[in-house]
């Protein structure tokens, strides 16, 4: 007896639905986009192969814009790529080579498999060859046309960042939308400098992305809007997790850690 006949017999007996009906029932319970979202985690963990860079990420919680301290900003960077690439091809390439498009000064320690929902990627930022600030991101969401990061506690920004490829009138636009507050009072003090660094960094990223698809000399459009001018003083204690302070401490104490591991203490 074939499997197909067997399935029909079961249905006739009223004991179980065939596989197709079971799949439809499951689909009505599990939303079609469930696989695009990260699973809920209370504390972030970092994969072994990049754990050396994840000391400011492991054990932290994610921090959305309302867990931050400073004013709430919405900042958008976009670049018109014309018909050089479609949105899905663009986002597939962006997800696969995300860190490669970063300008000098940033290092993204993502998984070799690219940007996948639930992945936690440590990163380092800082100018020149000097010490870098270590932090990371959680991939909150990823689909064919966009992906979104959330930042962990201690990151410069409590934020949600969406990267997307959007089509209008036959042209593709690469866009980065950031919703952020600085995480704590110290980072808020540095905001006038950091916002210029952000503009340079993300504009550079979009230029590199455009160039990789053969589009040079692009104009990056920047928009910035303050959605809430209030600072959230109740979150001033976020300074405890400040990744700048902790990165500096990690670097200063590195010789002592080496000595300790060499002596087996």
């Amino acid at each position: 007896m074939s499997d197909e006949t067997s399935a029909e017999r079961v249905v006739e007996a009223g004991q179980a639905a065939p596989a197709t009906q079971v799949d439809e029932a499951a689909a009505s319970i599990t939303p079609r986009d469930a696989g695009n979202w990260a699973a809920k985690v209370d504390r972030l963990s970092v994969a072994d192969e990049v754990s050396g860079f994840g000391y400011n990420v492991a054990g932290r919680r994610v921090a959305g814009p309302h867990q931050g301290f400073g004013r709430l900003w919405q900042r958008t960077y976009s670049v018109d790529l014309g018909s050089a690439v479609g949105p899905q091809e663009l986002v597939a390439d962006w997800r696969a080579h995300f860190g490669d498009f970063w300008p000098k000064g940033g290092v993204f320690h993502g998984a070799l498999t690219g940007i996948e929902p639930g992945a936690v990627a440590p990163l380092e930022v800082g100018g020149g060859r000097g010490p870098k600030l270590a932090t990371g991101v959680l991939v909150l969401y990823a689909d064919d046309e966009s992906f979104t990061f959330m930042t962990p506690e201690g990151h410069m920004f409590a934020s949600m960042i969406t990267f997307s490829g959007e089509e209008a009138d036959g042209a593709t636009t690469a866009r980065i939308r950031i919703l952020l507050r600085t995480s704590d009072p110290l980072f808020e003090l540095g905001w006038p400098i950091m916002k210029r660094a952000e503009d340079t960094f993300w504009s550079g990223t979009l230029r590199n992305l455009a160039a990789s698809h053969g589009v040079d000399d692009v104009h990056v459009q920047e928009e910035s809007e303050c959605l809430d001018r209030q600072r959230l003083w109740k979150n001033w204690r976020n300074v405890w997790h400040n990744a700048g302070i902790r990165s500096a401490w990690h670097i200063v104490t590195a010789p002592f850690r080496s000595q300790k591991s060499a002596t087996g203490a």
């Binding site: 966009s146 959605l227 809430d228």
Partner: peptide, 20 residues
């Protein structure tokens, strides 16, 4: 019937306005 991450970001922005 559907909210994606951009939609969630819009709700975050709305929350910011409401709280302010």
């Amino acid at each position: 019937d559907y909210i994606n991450s951009t939609g969630i970001a819009l709700i975050v922005g709305l929350l910011g306005k409401a709280r302010s």
